[in-house]
Amino acid sequence: MTLTREEALRSFLFELGGEKRLVISSSHLHVHNEQLICTSAGQSEIKASIYPAPERASASAYATLCESLQPIFTTYTLQVSPYEPRVQIDYEKEHAAYLNIDTCWPEKVNDLFVEVDYEGDVAAAYIHRQLLTDHIQYGQPWKIGLKQSRHLLHSHALRLLITPLRKGTTEHYVNQAYVEQFHGVEVFLMFE
């Protein structure tokens, strides 16, 4: 059997049903209790091609399963309904925002991610004055997983703070204390 480079990079070898099986998928895969677990954040469709095909296949109650036979592999397509929570954003300042996120997630949702696209230097996320995570801007959106903090989000908002980019110069001098003066322009964030 010959695989393309893309297929080879997305290939896994698992023991399922007492037999080793080759699985090709772009999803995150692992086996738990003789079951193939597929997760794919941000996508409502998951595909997995399996060789040899298992004798029977079923999906969880939250997904529909379609099966298509190909010459060698059997491709299984799972469809799940997407979930978007209610989020209320309050801008405290132009570089700070509070996100009140509905924590009544359906049972089918394993984790919830907030994606923040901003312009700035560094960013930090807090829940009730505790640092949840931080981020250094490198051109990609910031993704924050909320699963571990769900219990705090019931009664507290997620607070995002962005340190602006600075274009200019900074003077440093000591005048009974260390003084720093910035001369220039600060570029503030844009939340999406």
Rank of each mutant, 00 (worst) to 15 (best):
S68C: 01
I50Y: 03
H135P: 06
H183W: 05
A53W: 00
T133H: 00
G184A: 02
P54H: 00
N33Q: 11
G168M: 01
W142F: 12
S149H: 14
I136Q: 05
E67K: 08
T169R: 10
I127D: 00
G184V: 01
N100S: 15
Q176V: 03
D121N: 10
F182T: 04
P85C: 12
A48T: 00
V174C: 12
T103I: 13
V80S: 05
W105R: 04
L9W: 02
V114P: 03
E15N: 11
L3W: 04
E6Q: 10
L146V: 03
L78M: 07
H156K: 08
V31L: 06
V174E: 15
V87Y: 04
G168W: 01
Q140M: 13
H156M: 02
R10L: 12
S155Y: 07
T4A: 10
S40W: 14
Q130P: 04
V109Y: 01
P71L: 14
E67H: 01
Q79E: 03
Q79K: 10
G42D: 06
Q35K: 14
I89W: 06
A8P: 03
C66G: 10
A53H: 02
H154Y: 13
Y126E: 00
A96R: 09
T4P: 13
I89F: 08
C38T: 10
E45K: 13
F12C: 06
T170C: 06
Y62V: 03
E7R: 04
E94I: 13
